[in-house]
């Protein structure tokens, strides 16, 4: 499993901009929103956390359709499925690699992007915490969606349709935690729910995803 993780990380570094691409997309979305809603600082500070969460979610979605598709095209997925590793472990390792390449850099960069929306420093902490707790769930849920659509010729759009509704609870609790934190309200409940979703998804979804991959390879 560590071998799979290391290989996927190495591949995304070598293929150029594995780390950079999601961040660049994040930056573009964050830049575009003020053009749409107007430059008033008060409005932007109000919607900032939500925008950052939605941007993180979209950036995460961007690279998902390649998660298993490249391995399926060059035959590596067949070989991984016949390897002594449990396929569930392969899925988990690949989801973790996806998170390290997309979710982790976004989490670390979010406070910087928060500056663009004039978010006060105490909110940075809430932003960092909620993204750190929530983005792993995005990668794991996304891996499940990618597993469902791995055999399809044009799975990209379908993948978004399948995965985005599954992202709803993560998005709600994530953005809510930041909002409550910023307003000085108790934010433990949404943070705990967020952590619960991440842990539950990480524990159970690799099994569903591996089952879907086996069905698709048949």
């Amino acid at each position: 499993m560590i071998a799979v993780l290391v290989r996927d990380l190495r591949l995304s570094i070598r293929s150029g901009g594995g780390f950079g691409l999601a961040l660049a997309f994040f930056l573009i979305v964050v830049t575009l929103v003020p053009f749409g809603v107007g430059p008033e600082a008060a409005v932007l500070a109000r919607i900032g956390p939500g925008i950052l969460w939605v941007a993180a979610l979209l950036a995460c979605l961007l690279s998902l359709d390649r998660l298993f598709a490249t391995d399926a095209e060059d035959g590596a997925l067949d070989l991984l499925a016949t390897a002594p590793l449990p396929l569930e472990g392969v899925v988990a390792a690949k989801a973790l690699a996806h998170w390290i390449v997309t979710g982790l850099p976004l989490t670390l960069a979010a406070p910087v992007f928060g500056l663009l929306y004039d978010l006060p420093p105490p909110v940075w902490g809430w932003l960092l915490g909620s993204l750190a707790l929530g983005t792993p769930a995005l990668s794991v849920i996304g891996a499940f969606g990618a597993a469902l659509t791995v055999g399809l010729k044009r799975g990209g759009l379908l993948l978004s349709l399948l995965v985005l509704p599954l992202y709803v609870p993560t998005l709600i609790f994530g953005a809510e935690a930041v909002r409550r934190g910023a307003d000085g309200l108790p934010a433990a409940t949404p943070l705990l729910m967020l952590g619960g979703i991440t842990l539950g998804a990480a524990a159970l979804l690799p099994f569903a995803a591996a089952a879907a991959i086996r069905v698709n390879l048949r």
């Binding site: 709803v168 609870p169 709600i172």
Partner: peptide, 11 residues
């Protein structure tokens, strides 16, 4: 996830 969404939305 639909159940989770239901409670998330209530929240």
């Amino acid at each position: 996830f639909a159940l989770l969404s239901r409670y998330a939305v209530l929240f």
